[in-house]
């Protein structure tokens, strides 16, 4: 790190802390206004704001980024950046949001923040066209390449029924904090792509998952990589022709965001936003049965915030 970079990141850190501490007050206020106890909610839903504003509001309700990222920790963020299409097409997680998460993670004291996806289109163009590369680098994070088999190491899990071994992205296993940052969209094969489905980008061979009961395999991904935090970008959602989408006609502006540590609950909330029944997306139930979260969100403490 040269001096300029250092100064820059210091400035970002200071600004970040300032913002978060200011937000803390407002968030706490609004929580009180909404009549929710000061106890931290299980799931936060934010709506009607720009992605960055919604995220700031939402994360504050969960105690701020510092309750997930401790100083000197290594943070890895997995947005969904599968296709070489622009943000308006909603095939990839909103780049501004990715940038903001990176910024906040750094502000919370993270040693380094890495961002990756095992892209489906050519990685170079995808990182660029999606706008993620620029946003992440501006925020002080690092985009890393996940396009070669040598970056993955073999992992086994006897508890899994179908996916008993798979090659997992190495930096992900080495990180202290794993932030799952999916975008909510329609998906031809799995009906819906969101938090749990996003984990498929953590492994090298996805073909085998399609080959041997896709829904079971998607749920079993959680044996290998369990996110610390799930942030669902539902600002723009793709409601047809997913996960790639054909044009902006497939996209609707919904302006929602879900944040939760419970990946199952987060995905259930997502089904409500996109308008699917829970049993249309079977892997959510499977994940619950494997013990990765609760699907009955009516029993959860949900904070609903207007950004």
């Amino acid at each position: 790190m040269n001096r300029r970079q250092f100064l820059k990141s210091m400035a970002v850190a200071v600004a970040g802390t300032a913002i978060t501490s200011k937000l803390k007050v407002t968030a706490a206020e609004s929580l009180v206004q909404d009549g929710i106890s000061a106890e931290l909610p299980d799931l936060v839903a934010v709506r009607n704001g720009e992605p960055i504003a919604m995220f700031r509001k939402g994360i504050e309700a969960l105690g701020g980024m510092q309750s997930f990222v401790k100083p000197e920790q290594k943070v890895i963020i997995k947005p969904n950046i599968s296709f070489d299409s622009a943000p308006e097409r909603a095939a990839n997680t909103n780049p501004e949001l990715v940038g903001e998460v990176v910024r906040q993670a750094l502000a919370a004291g993270a040693k380094e923040v890495l961002v990756f996806d095992h892209t489906l289109s050519d990685w170079k163009t995808t990182y660029k066209v999606s706008g993620t590369q620029e946003a992440v680098e501006q925020a002080g994070g690092k985009m890393i390449l996940a396009d070669e088999k040598k970056f993955y190491i073999n992992q086994k899990n006897v508890k899994a029924l179908k996916l008993q071994e798979t090659d997992v992205f190495k930096p992900l296993l080495e990180a202290d904090v794993f932030i799952n940052l999916p975008i909510l969209k329609h998906h031809g094969g799995a009906k819906m792509s969101c938090a749990i489905k996003n984990l498929m980008g953590n492994v090298w061979d996805r073909r085998i998952m399609h080959r041997s009961d896709l829904n079971q395999c998607i749920a079993e991904m959680l044996f290998y990589t369990k996110p610390t935090l799930n942030i669902i970008d539902a600002y723009r959602i793709m409601i047809a022709n997913g996960p790639r989408g054909v044009s902006t006609d497939d996209v609707r502006l919904t302006k929602y965001m879900i944040i939760s540590t419970d990946i199952v609950a987060a995905d259930v909330a997502a089904t409500k936003i996109i308008g699917y029944e829970l049993d249309e997306v079977p892997y959510i139930k499977i994940a619950e049965n494997l013990g990765f979260g609760k699907s009955d969100i009516t029993k959860l403490n949900i904070a609903r915030l207007e950004a």
Binding site: H187, G188, G189, R207, H210, R211, L214, Q216, N241
Partner: peptide, 17 residues
């Protein structure tokens, strides 16, 4: 079992599940 790997990648929407 569900698959749709093909439709997932199709850029033109020519494949639908």
């Amino acid at each position: 079992t569900e698959c749709g790997a093909c439709a997932e990648q199709c850029p033109t929407g020519a494949l639908q599940m």
